[in-house]
Simulated scan of single mutants.
Amino acid sequence: MIRARHPAGTCGRPLPMSSPSFLDAETTNADELTAAISTGFGYRIAPTTRALSHRQHVIVGDPVTVADVEWDTEVRVAVDSTDEVMFVQVHSGAYAFNPWGAEHVIGEGEAFVMPPDQELDFVIDHAYASTCSFSAQVLRRVAGEIWDDEDVCLAEGAVRPVDAARHWLWRRTVQEYRQQVLETPEVYGNELLRAQATRFVVVSAISAFGLVTEPRGGAEESAAVRRATAWVDEHRREPITVQDIAAAARLSTRGLSLAFRRERGQTPMEYVRLARVDGARADLIAGDPTRGDTVTSISADWGFSNAGRFTALYRQTYGETPRRTLMR
């Protein structure tokens, strides 16, 4: 069964839109599934499994669409080539597919991007996921504005997030866009606010998944950011200030902040916090509760004085609690 709520006078994926469209679908029928995916996402698919169970909640915006999708069985799906770029955060189960001619399996807590202009074959195994999508045209336009270059190229081979920090920032950005823009009529109806929020979603995706081959003109600044992140990674257990990072990068503090915003979509200190969370995760994995290792003690070793805030940040980054990691 497919249930849709569209703005007056609209259906499917109309553009422009004064308000988002909401589409809910629940089906065990392959033909209904094909129609639901086409209406909600603009994809043409061909299920090769007749026994299936699928639910989806889709919010179709202009130009960003987000959704929650759930598959209660293992399903094989062939996806036609499209101009759409879709990002998928897997909450449970697994997706196996073949972007760029290589086989990938994406499991719980991981994310991936479906590149445009490729025919893809999926095996979806009892999966629950959230998605975010927009056209490759929007991606190229925003990337061109960032680098002031009309000929930016989409990077080949991009599938997974570049690192945990950018993955976390992308997830938070999409969550905020959904709640504060798509689900807030007064914000969505303001074209300027929606345009700026959309740009941040696209920039976050470019940064998180390494979607664009950066023009040569940006190499010097990228080298500065690489110096900064390498220094932070080496000193992340120590007290760190923005001034320390700027000195390592050989930039002013303002130049450092602008470079991080432009290239990574985050502040320098956000990178520090996530680098420390990554270090804490390694200690949690190696930890042993029978030796007295605790989440509180390990987080404190990494500079987190508030265990509750550490737990929240850790869960947002890795999709599980630090206690669960420690107890494995």
Results as ranks from 00 to 15, higher is better:
R141E: 02
A224Y: 04
A247V: 11
L192Q: 07
A136W: 05
A136R: 00
F200L: 07
F260Y: 12
E150S: 09
I146V: 13
H167A: 15
L193D: 12
S252C: 12
L182D: 04
D148I: 01
A197F: 02
Y177C: 05
A249R: 04
R236Q: 08
V242K: 13
L182C: 04
L211F: 10
R171H: 15
R227L: 14
D163H: 13
A249T: 01
R227D: 12
V159F: 02
Q137C: 00
P161S: 08
V201S: 04
A246L: 07
H235W: 12
A165F: 00
L256D: 13
N190A: 13
Q243H: 09
V138H: 04
V225L: 08
V142A: 05
A208C: 00
E234R: 15
A205N: 09
R262E: 12
E186K: 03
T241E: 14
V201H: 10
A230V: 06
R140A: 04
R166A: 13
A248S: 03
A230S: 15
R236I: 11
D151M: 05
L169Y: 10
R254E: 14
V187R: 01
A248N: 00
R236M: 10
P239D: 13
D151R: 03
D151A: 02
S207N: 15
C153Y: 11
A219M: 03
S135F: 06
T198R: 04
G210N: 09
A230G: 11
R166C: 14
T229K: 04
A155D: 11
E220M: 10
E221K: 13
E150M: 00
W147K: 01
E221H: 05
R140Q: 00
I245Q: 03
H235E: 15
L258R: 13
W170M: 15
V181K: 10
V202Q: 09
R199I: 04
R261W: 10
G255Q: 11
L193T: 04
D163A: 05
A136Y: 05
V242P: 10
E238S: 15
A228G: 02
E220S: 09
V159S: 03
R262L: 14
R250G: 11
V138E: 05
L182H: 00
R237C: 13
V159I: 01
E214R: 07
Q243W: 06
S135N: 01
S135H: 02
L211D: 11
R141S: 04
V174F: 07
R261A: 15
P215M: 07
I240C: 07
E183I: 03
L251K: 00
R254F: 12
F209Q: 08
S135Y: 02
G144H: 07
E183F: 02
F134I: 09
F134S: 12
W231C: 03
A136H: 01
